[in-house]
Amino acid sequence: METTLPFRHEEEKCYLKNNHPITNFTIPFILVLPFLILNDIYLIYTIIIITLMIGLSCKINILRVLSRIKSIILFVILMTIFIPFYVGPSVAFQLGVFTLYQEGIYFAFLLFSRMFGSIFVFLTFFSSLTYSEFIEILTKLRLPSMFIGSFIIMLHYIPILAYSNRKILIAQELRGKKITTYREKFKAHAYIMGKSIVENIERGEKLYESLKMRGFSGKITLATRRIKFIDVIIVVLIILMMMFLVIIDLEAIFNGVVGLFWQ
């Protein structure tokens, strides 16, 4: 659970835990939405800096957030790296048969920043939620109970699957298999995955039977708490801050700050 899922431990200190889970769940949406709509790269980096400051001041483990980003950043790079070769027309560089376009570079950079920014903001605020608070939010959002039930079972099995895979890999290494490269590791995981999936489908069936034995009828009921007035105030303040950031000239401020250090 510690490393696989992006949630806070129950005992872990975090000042955001005093907020209602729905507040912490809503904030990243309010922060991310404007920079997904507007083509403002300065807004993206302002939001990243604000999130970083909130994270650090509220004792969110930013290093853990970054280590989680590390595992998905490769896909973000892969999705954006080829854009400069296709989106034109102003040529920036000519590398043999390959042409890099100015518009493409800007667009790739914007897209990368948007994706990185969204992931960073969401992971930071989700790290302030515990697993049970996350489930509470899904329940409060009136999502279908079958979906929530399936989601709980899925989340439950992710760490178990990861743990059993790790154990099989260790057993293989102890019997002489050498896993030194990323490719070998990937291959070893692929072989194990089939077995693990079958095993976990069987486990899922048993879990369903055990839930049935305790009265499960498709609806998961968990204890919930009420939204306080302060939670609404926080959301309103965040919205006002975002409106202010959209209105002001962030480019001038960034240039001014950079200029201070440049001279």
Binding site: T130, F134, K206, L207, L222
Partner: peptide, 25 residues
């Protein structure tokens, strides 16, 4: 009914929520 493997039974995020599951049902 107690299953042989407790991982087949425990599913909720915290112990108190798992234990309270049947009572809420």
């Amino acid at each position: 009914f107690l299953f042989q493997n407790p991982d087949d039974q425990l599913f909720a995020p915290t112990i108190q929520e798992d234990v309270g599951f049947a009572a809420r049902n």
